[in-house]
Design a binder for these strands. Structure first.
Length: 545
RNA sequence: GGGCCGCUAGCUCAGCUGGUAGAGCAGCAGACUCUUAAUCUGCGGGUCAAAGGUUCGAUCCCUUUGCGGCUCACCA
């Protein structure tokens, strides 16, 4: 997973050796660069910096969770761009307890019998993977490479169950009073005197409904299964059943992995939240808290109708990638400071986002002159938005809205639509196709009705036209046959001539032709529209009259 | 109760480390022998929530207040 970055580094050196860029780099105004600087400043020079992220895969990993992942990836990239060696770890906290059956899961009755067990032992009733947690993990692991993210995954169930953290758990037990004091600072009711900084799944039932009875001061922990009443003594060095509760688990892993940077949501970052206590608890493990920041939530806009929020369905990275290309998906996050909330839109805003991105790209390639400050800013945003190495040529910038119409001309046939475009270079083709797929998904699924239409076909039943309307449509045929002889303006003049000769006012004529062609009273500006469609598509429709 | 974040043109927001504010949409005007436009052009004096403070100078820093939102104090 490191090689991709290596290529990217090489690419950058090859393409941007100008000294002007160096001074721009120095200023570091992008938030990812600012945090990279801060990490280096606070952690000092290191052979390798560790950036971490993670989540409990207790349900579909949604786009809000993705914000943390990409935030870390961007800071990791920024560190690499400064020449640092970086380890980017992603923790699947899949030894956490299954506490609630999510909505819309098949076979909820079966799932209910697994409550209180670790999610990694819960069956996947969707049949996608060997267990419930793994199914959620796989969804993410499969899609992240699409947006250029390649973390090193750490599976906590596997790690705990193989007793990798035996030392950590023992350390926690040894510092029980100290940890309790830290946690109690913020609790309304203090932890009980018989509290232990460790939790145990029952070896009899796999559930966490257990009570710790004692610790022998070494590796032995005795617990009771609250359901069956059985007791057992386990050895931390060999048992798969013990783990640390979250507020201790997190700092223990900071210390163990030497985490230098890990952001977190606002739920963790409040005073008394888990980041707050963890940065104190981590000292017990001989570590230091990572540099961090708080990222805000993400909302969704413009998916009314398709998704009902009450259904329990959530928007994932996969859904976003249906409408936004990988680099534009990154761009959404790159261009927004992490501590501000924003909405990912599926409505008309999509057009503007594409336009903004294209502008950013034009600025990067010097095709759109702006002042130095703006240029430096957009340039960095463009770089960080790229999935892999920064392209050497701009993409084929067909406006999204125009692309939607072009695709509708061809009924969604992407190859046919692309075939009508001039000057697409081989290097642009892949990105253009992805943009086409996104445009087609958007226009056919999320666009307002006003934007949607489809061309009539020869097999459709013709409209019942008569009089001047019928005459005008018939008179249009010979003009369209000579379509290629006219430029757009000349053809527009012919359209007016046809209308006049048939005795129709302009508006009435246009309305008729739109009804004939796309079944709507209004449409794209007619002359250009017919030229875009081409006579091969238009004539069969008109000749039915 | 604690913490965090907002409050900027009618609307949505930029303004990233202080130099008397910008963009999109909407609106208005105009152009193309062309429509209720998939076009292009022009038009933006808004006490930057309020009051103090620091400064030569603050939307941007500090303090206080108001309004709105989120979050913690249970688990992860």
């Amino acid at each position: 997973m490191g090689t991709r970055y290596l290529h990217r580094e090489e690419g950058k050196r090859a393409h941007r050796p100008r000294s002007k860029d160096m001074s721009e780099q120095m200023q570091a105004t992008h938030w990812a660069d600012i945090y990279a600087d801060k990490i280096i400043r606070e952690k000092g020079p290191k052979a390798r910096y560790t950036c971490a992220s993670g989540i409990t895969p207790s349900g579909t990993v949604h786009i809000g969770n993705f914000r943390e992942i990409i935030s870390v990836e961007l800071v990791a990239r920024a560190l690499k761009d400064k020449g640092c060696d970086v380890r980017f770890i992603y923790s699947w906290d899949d030894y956490d307890v299954f506490r609630k059956v999510p909505k819309n899961m098949p076979n909820p009755t079966l799932l209910e019998t697994y409550l209180r067990k670790p999610i990694t032992l819960v069956p996947d009733t969707t049949g996608r993977a060997e267990n419930y947690a793994r199914a959620n993990e796989l969804d993410v692991e499969k899609i992240l490479p699409v947006v250029g993210i390649h973390p090193e995954y750490l599976y906590q169930a596997e790690r705990y169950r193989s007793s990798i953290y035996a030392e950590g758990m023992r350390t926690a037990l040894e510092h029980r009073a100290e940890i309790k004091a830290i946690l109690d600072e913020y609790r309304t009711t203090p932890l009980p005197d018989d509290w232990w900084p460790i939790s145990v799944f029952s070896s009899f039932t796999d559930k966490d409904t257990t009570t710790i009875l004692g610790w022998d001061g070494q590796w032995g922990v005795t617990y009771r299964d609250d359901e069956t009443g059985q007791t057992e003594t386990i050895d931390l060095r060999t048992t798969p059943y013990a783990k640390l509760p979250w507020r201790i688990d997190w700092p223990m892993r900071w210390a163990r992995e030497g985490v230098d940077f890990e952001p977190a949501g606002k739920d963790h970052h409040s005073e008394g939240g888990s980041f707050d206590t963890s940065k104190k608890v981590v000292e017990v493990f001989g570590g230091k808290p990572p540099v961090s920041f708080q990222y805000d939530f993400i909302s969704i806009k413009g998916r009314g109708g398709k998704i009902s929020s009450s259904s329990g369905e959530v928007i994932s990275l996969y859904d976003v990638l249906e409408v936004y290309t990988p680099e534009i998906t990154r761009y959404l996050f790159v261009g927004t400071r992490p501590n501000t909330e924003f909405a990912i839109s599926f409505d008309l805003d999509v057009l503007k986002i594409y336009e903004d991105y294209d502008n950013c790209e034009r600025i990067y390639f010097g095709l759109l002159p702006v002042n130095e400050k703006r240029r430096a800013k957009e340039k960095r945003i463009y770089e960080l938005s790229q999935v892999g190495e920064v392209p050497t040529e701009p993409s084929y910038q067909i406006p999204f809205r125009h692309l939607c119409n072009l695709l509708q001309v061809h009924g969604g046939d992407i190859d046919a639509a692309i075939a009508t475009l001039d000057g697409v270079t081989p290097g642009q083709m892949d990105r253009l196709k992805v943009r086409c797929q996104c445009a087609w998904t958007w226009i056919s699924t999320f666009a307002p009705e006003d934007f949607k239409w489809h061309l009539a076909t020869a097999s459709d039943k013709p409209l019942a036209l008569e009089g001047a309307s019928l005459a005008s449509v018939r008179a249009l045929v010979p003009e369209v046959e000579k379509l290629d002889e006219y430029d757009e303006k000349a053809f527009a003049e012919r359209l007016y001539a046809v209308a006049a000769e048939a005795g129709l006012e302009g508006p009435e004529f246009f309305k008729t032709v739109y009804l004939v062609l796309i079944g709507k009273e209004r449409g794209p500006k007619l002359a250009g529209f017919i030229k875009t469609c081409g006579k091969e598509k238009i004539l069969p429709i008109l000749r039915r009259y």
